[in-house]
Amino acid sequence: MSELLERIAHVVEKGKVNKAAPFPPALKGEDGADELTKRAVEEGIKPQRILNEGLVVGMMKIGVKFKNNEVFVPDVLIAAKAMKAGMKHIEPFFLSKEVEYKGKIVAGTVAGDLHDIGKNILSMILQGGGWEVVDLGIDVSADKFAEAVAEHKPEAVCMSALLTTTMVNMEAVVKKIRETSPETKTIVGGAPLTADFAKKIEADFYSPDPQGALEYLNSECAA
């Protein structure tokens, strides 16, 4: 891996968005993901390499730390912001097909549930892992999930719930996806869930953290 790509991974992990960003203090005045990614493109490094060996590596590192409780939500959010700053220089290459996502995900918080922070973090970790995410928001019905699957043809649907009263609504989504798009994987997560519950509703996978969902997608669904 080139030194520049290693540097991109480092600033994403640390959440250094751009040179002007005041945090983290240890990187004050140094280039952030914005400047470094731009430079990598200008130096002719292939955009797919910049994504896979720079930006994604940084997000993977923070995702693993989050999974292991070494860092908390704010570090993930700030890393995602740095990732986004770098991605704006890569995005034009998606149109020209010089860069491709690993696949597509439809994500949402299930019907009756208005909590979105967990689902947002999941979306950021998956995007940071090289997946395209179609975020349906909160309070998403089984029909709405199914419509989005028909339209976007994702590799998987990720569902989140924060309440015991709403996690039961995941069952209808899993059932609907199985009926309408049996090849699409269903992944469930959220504070009150357990692996037993996921098994009971016949979801394909349960992960207690976003990184687990990303690792499952990378191993089971990546193109």
Binding site: G112, D113, L114, H115, L163, T165, T166
Partner: peptide, 10 residues
């Protein structure tokens, strides 16, 4: 309370 027992304001 919503139908799913969620309090509003959250």
């Amino acid at each position: 309370l919503t139908a799913t027992s969620l309090m509003r304001p959250i």
